[in-house]
Design a protein around this nucleic acid. Structure first.
Lengths: 158, 158
DNA sequence: GGAGATTGTTTGGGGAGCAAACAAATTCGG
DNA sequence: CCGAATTTGTTTGCTCCCCAAACAATCTCC
Protein backbone atom coordinates (compact mmCIF):
# COMPACT_ATOMS: atom_id res chain seq x y z
CA UNK A 1 0.00 0.00 0.00
CA UNK A 2 1.39 3.33 -1.08
CA UNK A 3 2.15 5.68 1.75
CA UNK A 4 1.00 9.09 0.51
CA UNK A 5 2.89 11.43 2.84
CA UNK A 6 6.60 11.25 2.17
CA UNK A 7 8.02 13.70 -0.34
CA UNK A 8 5.72 14.38 -3.24
CA UNK A 9 7.05 17.71 -4.51
CA UNK A 10 5.10 18.83 -7.53
CA UNK A 11 3.39 15.61 -8.49
CA UNK A 12 -0.24 16.54 -8.02
CA UNK A 13 -1.79 15.47 -4.78
CA UNK A 14 -4.99 13.73 -3.85
CA UNK A 15 -7.96 15.93 -4.66
CA UNK A 16 -10.62 13.57 -3.31
CA UNK A 17 -14.08 14.37 -4.59
CA UNK A 18 -13.17 17.81 -5.83
CA UNK A 19 -12.67 16.88 -9.51
CA UNK A 20 -16.22 15.55 -9.64
CA UNK A 21 -17.72 18.75 -8.24
CA UNK A 22 -19.14 21.06 -10.85
CA UNK A 23 -18.52 24.12 -8.69
CA UNK A 24 -14.88 23.20 -8.23
CA UNK A 25 -14.17 22.53 -11.91
CA UNK A 26 -16.05 25.67 -12.85
CA UNK A 27 -13.98 27.79 -10.50
CA UNK A 28 -10.66 26.39 -11.67
CA UNK A 29 -11.59 26.74 -15.32
CA UNK A 30 -12.73 30.31 -14.80
CA UNK A 31 -9.44 31.09 -13.10
CA UNK A 32 -7.42 29.67 -16.00
CA UNK A 33 -9.53 31.51 -18.55
CA UNK A 34 -9.07 34.74 -16.65
CA UNK A 35 -5.31 34.23 -16.68
CA UNK A 36 -5.39 33.61 -20.41
CA UNK A 37 -7.42 36.78 -20.94
CA UNK A 38 -4.95 38.83 -18.92
CA UNK A 39 -1.98 37.29 -20.72
CA UNK A 40 -3.50 37.94 -24.12
CA UNK A 41 -3.98 41.62 -23.37
CA UNK A 42 -0.66 42.04 -21.61
CA UNK A 43 1.14 40.55 -24.58
CA UNK A 44 -0.56 43.09 -26.84
CA UNK A 45 0.43 45.94 -24.54
CA UNK A 46 -3.18 46.54 -23.55
CA UNK A 47 -4.70 46.34 -20.09
CA UNK A 48 -8.29 45.29 -19.54
CA UNK A 49 -10.22 42.86 -17.40
CA UNK A 50 -13.03 40.66 -18.65
CA UNK A 51 -15.43 42.69 -16.53
CA UNK A 52 -14.31 45.94 -18.09
CA UNK A 53 -14.71 44.49 -21.57
CA UNK A 54 -18.26 43.40 -20.79
CA UNK A 55 -19.02 46.82 -19.40
CA UNK A 56 -17.71 48.60 -22.48
CA UNK A 57 -19.74 46.39 -24.80
CA UNK A 58 -22.86 47.04 -22.76
CA UNK A 59 -22.31 50.80 -22.88
CA UNK A 60 -21.62 50.73 -26.60
CA UNK A 61 -24.75 48.76 -27.40
CA UNK A 62 -26.95 50.75 -25.03
CA UNK A 63 -25.63 54.28 -25.24
CA UNK A 64 -27.16 56.68 -22.77
CA UNK A 65 -28.02 54.10 -20.14
CA UNK A 66 -27.79 55.00 -16.46
CA UNK A 67 -25.39 53.63 -13.89
CA UNK A 68 -28.19 51.81 -12.10
CA UNK A 69 -29.27 50.10 -15.32
CA UNK A 70 -25.68 49.14 -16.02
CA UNK A 71 -25.11 47.86 -12.49
CA UNK A 72 -28.23 45.72 -12.75
CA UNK A 73 -27.12 44.33 -16.09
CA UNK A 74 -23.72 43.50 -14.63
CA UNK A 75 -25.22 42.03 -11.48
CA UNK A 76 -23.21 44.24 -9.16
CA UNK A 77 -24.02 46.92 -6.62
CA UNK A 78 -24.21 50.51 -7.84
CA UNK A 79 -21.53 51.51 -5.35
CA UNK A 80 -19.21 48.89 -6.81
CA UNK A 81 -19.64 50.40 -10.24
CA UNK A 82 -18.45 53.87 -9.29
CA UNK A 83 -14.68 53.25 -9.06
CA UNK A 84 -14.80 51.12 -12.20
CA UNK A 85 -16.40 53.94 -14.19
CA UNK A 86 -13.96 56.41 -12.65
CA UNK A 87 -11.07 54.37 -13.94
CA UNK A 88 -12.51 53.93 -17.43
CA UNK A 89 -13.37 57.62 -17.58
CA UNK A 90 -9.87 58.56 -16.42
CA UNK A 91 -8.55 56.48 -19.31
CA UNK A 92 -10.69 58.54 -21.65
CA UNK A 93 -12.72 55.59 -22.88
CA UNK A 94 -16.07 56.54 -21.41
CA UNK A 95 -18.02 59.62 -20.34
CA UNK A 96 -20.77 60.39 -17.87
CA UNK A 97 -22.99 62.96 -19.55
CA UNK A 98 -25.86 64.75 -17.89
CA UNK A 99 -29.15 63.13 -18.73
CA UNK A 100 -31.47 65.65 -20.38
CA UNK A 101 -34.56 63.92 -19.00
CA UNK A 102 -33.55 62.91 -15.47
CA UNK A 103 -31.32 65.11 -13.37
CA UNK A 104 -30.36 62.26 -11.08
CA UNK A 105 -28.90 59.93 -13.63
CA UNK A 106 -25.88 60.00 -15.87
CA UNK A 107 -26.08 59.05 -19.51
CA UNK A 108 -23.14 56.75 -20.09
CA UNK A 109 -21.42 56.62 -23.42
CA UNK A 110 -18.15 55.72 -25.10
CA UNK A 111 -15.82 58.43 -26.29
CA UNK A 112 -14.48 58.21 -29.84
CA UNK A 113 -11.27 56.91 -28.29
CA UNK A 114 -13.37 54.39 -26.39
CA UNK A 115 -15.01 53.18 -29.58
CA UNK A 116 -11.64 52.77 -31.24
CA UNK A 117 -10.18 51.01 -28.24
CA UNK A 118 -13.15 48.66 -28.05
CA UNK A 119 -12.50 47.62 -31.64
CA UNK A 120 -8.95 46.68 -30.70
CA UNK A 121 -10.14 44.95 -27.56
CA UNK A 122 -12.72 42.93 -29.49
CA UNK A 123 -9.99 41.60 -31.74
CA UNK A 124 -7.96 40.47 -28.75
CA UNK A 125 -11.00 38.89 -27.13
CA UNK A 126 -11.67 36.97 -30.32
CA UNK A 127 -8.12 35.61 -30.29
CA UNK A 128 -8.47 34.74 -26.62
CA UNK A 129 -11.79 32.99 -27.22
CA UNK A 130 -10.31 31.05 -30.07
CA UNK A 131 -7.48 29.81 -27.88
CA UNK A 132 -9.55 28.72 -24.91
CA UNK A 133 -11.97 26.91 -27.21
CA UNK A 134 -9.20 25.39 -29.30
CA UNK A 135 -9.75 21.96 -27.77
CA UNK A 136 -13.44 21.99 -28.63
CA UNK A 137 -15.37 21.66 -31.86
CA UNK A 138 -17.82 24.40 -32.73
CA UNK A 139 -20.66 22.12 -31.72
CA UNK A 140 -19.01 21.35 -28.39
CA UNK A 141 -18.56 25.03 -27.71
CA UNK A 142 -22.24 25.66 -28.32
CA UNK A 143 -23.11 22.70 -26.09
CA UNK A 144 -20.85 24.01 -23.35
CA UNK A 145 -22.40 27.46 -23.45
CA UNK A 146 -25.88 25.95 -23.37
CA UNK A 147 -25.08 23.76 -20.38
CA UNK A 148 -23.52 26.69 -18.53
CA UNK A 149 -26.66 28.75 -19.11
CA UNK A 150 -28.74 25.95 -17.66
CA UNK A 151 -26.54 25.82 -14.58
CA UNK A 152 -26.76 29.56 -14.17
CA UNK A 153 -30.54 29.38 -14.35
CA UNK A 154 -30.64 26.76 -11.59
CA UNK A 155 -28.16 28.53 -9.35
CA UNK A 156 -30.39 31.22 -8.07
CA UNK A 157 -29.51 33.54 -5.24
CA UNK A 158 -32.12 31.80 -3.07
CA UNK B 1 -37.23 50.21 -36.44
CA UNK B 2 -37.22 50.21 -32.71
CA UNK B 3 -35.34 53.03 -31.08
CA UNK B 4 -33.37 51.39 -28.28
CA UNK B 5 -32.72 54.32 -25.98
CA UNK B 6 -35.92 55.53 -24.32
CA UNK B 7 -36.85 54.04 -20.98
CA UNK B 8 -36.14 50.36 -20.64
CA UNK B 9 -36.04 49.93 -16.86
CA UNK B 10 -35.40 46.34 -15.97
CA UNK B 11 -36.11 44.66 -19.27
CA UNK B 12 -32.70 43.28 -20.11
CA UNK B 13 -30.63 45.31 -22.48
CA UNK B 14 -28.64 44.54 -25.57
CA UNK B 15 -25.68 42.37 -24.74
CA UNK B 16 -24.22 42.25 -28.24
CA UNK B 17 -21.79 39.40 -28.76
CA UNK B 18 -21.33 38.75 -25.06
CA UNK B 19 -23.77 35.81 -24.79
CA UNK B 20 -21.80 33.95 -27.45
CA UNK B 21 -18.49 34.40 -25.65
CA UNK B 22 -17.39 31.41 -23.62
CA UNK B 23 -15.44 33.56 -21.20
CA UNK B 24 -18.43 35.77 -20.53
CA UNK B 25 -20.88 32.94 -19.94
CA UNK B 26 -18.33 31.16 -17.80
CA UNK B 27 -17.82 34.20 -15.63
CA UNK B 28 -21.52 34.85 -15.13
CA UNK B 29 -22.23 31.22 -14.35
CA UNK B 30 -19.38 31.06 -11.88
CA UNK B 31 -20.73 34.15 -10.17
CA UNK B 32 -24.22 32.66 -9.83
CA UNK B 33 -22.81 29.38 -8.55
CA UNK B 34 -20.75 31.24 -5.99
CA UNK B 35 -23.85 33.06 -4.79
CA UNK B 36 -25.72 29.77 -4.49
CA UNK B 37 -22.85 28.28 -2.50
CA UNK B 38 -22.83 31.22 -0.10
CA UNK B 39 -26.60 31.15 0.26
CA UNK B 40 -26.60 27.42 0.97
CA UNK B 41 -24.10 27.81 3.78
CA UNK B 42 -25.65 30.97 5.18
CA UNK B 43 -29.01 29.29 5.36
CA UNK B 44 -27.46 26.46 7.38
CA UNK B 45 -25.80 28.92 9.73
CA UNK B 46 -22.34 28.01 8.45
CA UNK B 47 -19.82 30.27 6.80
CA UNK B 48 -17.39 29.00 4.19
CA UNK B 49 -16.22 29.94 0.73
CA UNK B 50 -15.73 27.48 -2.13
CA UNK B 51 -12.01 28.13 -1.89
CA UNK B 52 -11.91 27.29 1.80
CA UNK B 53 -13.82 24.09 1.18
CA UNK B 54 -11.35 23.03 -1.49
CA UNK B 55 -8.48 23.84 0.81
CA UNK B 56 -9.92 21.79 3.67
CA UNK B 57 -10.48 18.79 1.41
CA UNK B 58 -6.92 19.04 0.14
CA UNK B 59 -5.53 19.17 3.67
CA UNK B 60 -7.68 16.26 4.80
CA UNK B 61 -6.64 14.05 1.91
CA UNK B 62 -2.97 15.04 2.13
CA UNK B 63 -2.30 15.45 5.82
CA UNK B 64 1.11 16.85 6.65
CA UNK B 65 1.60 18.74 3.42
CA UNK B 66 3.46 22.04 3.41
CA UNK B 67 2.08 25.47 2.66
CA UNK B 68 4.05 25.67 -0.56
CA UNK B 69 2.63 22.35 -1.76
CA UNK B 70 -0.85 23.51 -0.86
CA UNK B 71 -0.41 26.87 -2.56
CA UNK B 72 0.78 25.14 -5.71
CA UNK B 73 -2.18 22.78 -5.64
CA UNK B 74 -4.53 25.74 -5.24
CA UNK B 75 -2.76 27.75 -7.90
CA UNK B 76 -2.19 30.74 -5.66
CA UNK B 77 0.86 32.51 -4.29
CA UNK B 78 2.24 31.32 -0.97
CA UNK B 79 1.79 34.80 0.48
CA UNK B 80 -1.90 34.70 -0.43
CA UNK B 81 -2.30 31.48 1.51
CA UNK B 82 -1.06 32.87 4.82
CA UNK B 83 -4.11 34.93 5.87
CA UNK B 84 -6.44 32.16 4.70
CA UNK B 85 -4.69 29.62 6.92
CA UNK B 86 -4.65 32.13 9.77
CA UNK B 87 -8.41 32.45 9.57
CA UNK B 88 -9.03 28.69 9.37
CA UNK B 89 -6.60 28.12 12.22
CA UNK B 90 -8.29 30.82 14.30
CA UNK B 91 -11.56 28.98 13.75
CA UNK B 92 -9.93 25.87 15.16
CA UNK B 93 -10.38 23.83 12.00
CA UNK B 94 -6.76 23.47 11.03
CA UNK B 95 -3.29 23.41 12.58
CA UNK B 96 0.22 24.22 11.48
CA UNK B 97 2.45 21.64 13.14
CA UNK B 98 6.22 21.69 13.03
CA UNK B 99 7.53 19.36 10.40
CA UNK B 100 9.83 16.76 11.97
CA UNK B 101 11.90 16.48 8.82
CA UNK B 102 12.12 20.05 7.55
CA UNK B 103 12.42 22.98 9.93
CA UNK B 104 11.28 25.45 7.31
CA UNK B 105 7.93 23.92 6.51
CA UNK B 106 4.74 23.47 8.45
CA UNK B 107 2.87 20.19 8.41
CA UNK B 108 -0.74 21.15 7.83
CA UNK B 109 -3.55 19.07 9.25
CA UNK B 110 -7.17 19.24 10.29
CA UNK B 111 -8.11 19.33 13.94
CA UNK B 112 -10.77 16.88 15.18
CA UNK B 113 -13.16 19.83 15.07
CA UNK B 114 -12.00 20.47 11.52
CA UNK B 115 -12.74 16.88 10.53
CA UNK B 116 -16.21 17.10 12.02
CA UNK B 117 -16.89 20.45 10.40
CA UNK B 118 -15.72 19.17 7.04
CA UNK B 119 -18.26 16.37 7.26
CA UNK B 120 -21.02 18.93 7.75
CA UNK B 121 -19.62 21.11 4.98
CA UNK B 122 -19.51 18.17 2.59
CA UNK B 123 -23.20 17.56 3.15
CA UNK B 124 -24.00 21.18 2.33
CA UNK B 125 -21.79 21.10 -0.74
CA UNK B 126 -23.61 18.02 -1.93
CA UNK B 127 -26.96 19.80 -1.58
CA UNK B 128 -25.53 22.83 -3.36
CA UNK B 129 -24.15 20.70 -6.19
CA UNK B 130 -27.48 18.95 -6.54
CA UNK B 131 -29.27 22.28 -6.92
CA UNK B 132 -26.95 23.85 -9.47
CA UNK B 133 -27.02 20.67 -11.55
CA UNK B 134 -30.76 20.24 -11.17
CA UNK B 135 -31.39 21.35 -14.74
CA UNK B 136 -28.97 18.78 -16.12
CA UNK B 137 -29.06 15.02 -16.49
CA UNK B 138 -26.23 13.02 -14.96
CA UNK B 139 -24.80 12.53 -18.43
CA UNK B 140 -24.99 16.25 -19.17
CA UNK B 141 -23.20 17.04 -15.91
CA UNK B 142 -20.39 14.66 -16.84
CA UNK B 143 -20.23 16.19 -20.31
CA UNK B 144 -20.09 19.67 -18.85
CA UNK B 145 -17.26 18.79 -16.49
CA UNK B 146 -15.36 17.15 -19.34
CA UNK B 147 -15.74 20.17 -21.61
CA UNK B 148 -14.67 22.53 -18.82
CA UNK B 149 -11.54 20.45 -18.25
CA UNK B 150 -10.73 20.70 -21.93
CA UNK B 151 -11.10 24.47 -21.81
CA UNK B 152 -8.92 24.68 -18.75
CA UNK B 153 -6.25 22.65 -20.49
CA UNK B 154 -6.26 25.03 -23.48
CA UNK B 155 -6.31 28.18 -21.39
CA UNK B 156 -2.72 28.18 -20.32
CA UNK B 157 -1.00 31.07 -18.65
CA UNK B 158 0.99 31.59 -21.84
C1' DG C 1 31.62 25.02 5.95
C1' DG C 2 29.81 28.29 2.92
C1' DA C 3 26.97 29.68 -1.28
C1' DG C 4 22.62 29.24 -3.11
C1' DA C 5 17.88 27.78 -2.93
C1' DT C 6 13.46 27.09 -0.39
C1' DT C 7 9.84 28.22 3.05
C1' DG C 8 6.79 31.02 5.62
C1' DT C 9 5.84 35.69 6.84
C1' DT C 10 5.29 40.67 6.45
C1' DT C 11 4.43 44.74 3.97
C1' DG C 12 2.58 47.33 0.23
C1' DG C 13 -0.47 47.81 -3.59
C1' DG C 14 -4.56 46.80 -6.56
C1' DG C 15 -9.13 45.25 -7.53
C1' DA C 16 -13.98 43.32 -6.53
C1' DG C 17 -17.77 43.28 -3.71
C1' DC C 18 -21.38 44.74 -0.18
C1' DA C 19 -23.89 47.79 3.33
C1' DA C 20 -25.08 52.09 5.21
C1' DA C 21 -25.53 56.93 5.02
C1' DC C 22 -26.24 61.28 2.32
C1' DA C 23 -27.57 64.98 -0.96
C1' DA C 24 -29.90 65.97 -5.07
C1' DA C 25 -33.67 65.03 -7.97
C1' DT C 26 -37.82 62.77 -9.30
C1' DT C 27 -42.31 60.75 -8.50
C1' DC C 28 -46.44 60.12 -6.07
C1' DG C 29 -50.35 60.99 -2.89
C1' DG C 30 -53.55 63.89 -1.20
C1' DC D 1 -49.38 71.91 -6.03
C1' DC D 2 -46.80 70.62 -2.09
C1' DG D 3 -44.94 67.53 1.03
C1' DA D 4 -43.55 62.54 1.51
C1' DA D 5 -41.50 58.64 -0.37
C1' DT D 6 -38.42 56.81 -3.77
C1' DT D 7 -34.50 56.72 -6.86
C1' DT D 8 -29.75 57.79 -8.22
C1' DG D 9 -24.94 58.52 -7.71
C1' DT D 10 -21.40 59.01 -4.33
C1' DT D 11 -18.62 58.35 -0.19
C1' DT D 12 -17.01 55.71 3.58
C1' DG D 13 -16.01 51.52 5.89
C1' DC D 14 -15.37 46.72 5.83
C1' DT D 15 -14.07 42.01 3.96
C1' DC D 16 -11.88 39.25 0.77
C1' DC D 17 -8.61 37.66 -3.08
C1' DC D 18 -4.35 38.27 -5.49
C1' DC D 19 0.48 39.39 -6.48
C1' DA D 20 5.39 41.19 -5.84
C1' DA D 21 9.28 42.20 -3.07
C1' DA D 22 11.91 41.76 0.93
C1' DC D 23 13.52 39.11 5.02
C1' DA D 24 14.98 35.59 8.44
C1' DA D 25 15.31 30.84 9.22
C1' DT D 26 16.44 26.60 7.33
C1' DC D 27 17.95 23.23 4.17
C1' DT D 28 20.97 21.50 0.16
C1' DC D 29 24.76 20.91 -2.39
C1' DC D 30 29.42 21.48 -3.51
Amino acid sequence: MARPSAKNPTLSLDRGVLPSLLGYVLRRTQSAVFADFAATFAQAGEALTPGEFGLLVLVERNAGLSQMALARALGIDRSTLVPILNRLQARGLLVRRDSPTDGRTHALGLTPAGEKALTRFARLVKAHEKRIASGLSAAETRTLIGLLEKVRASARSL
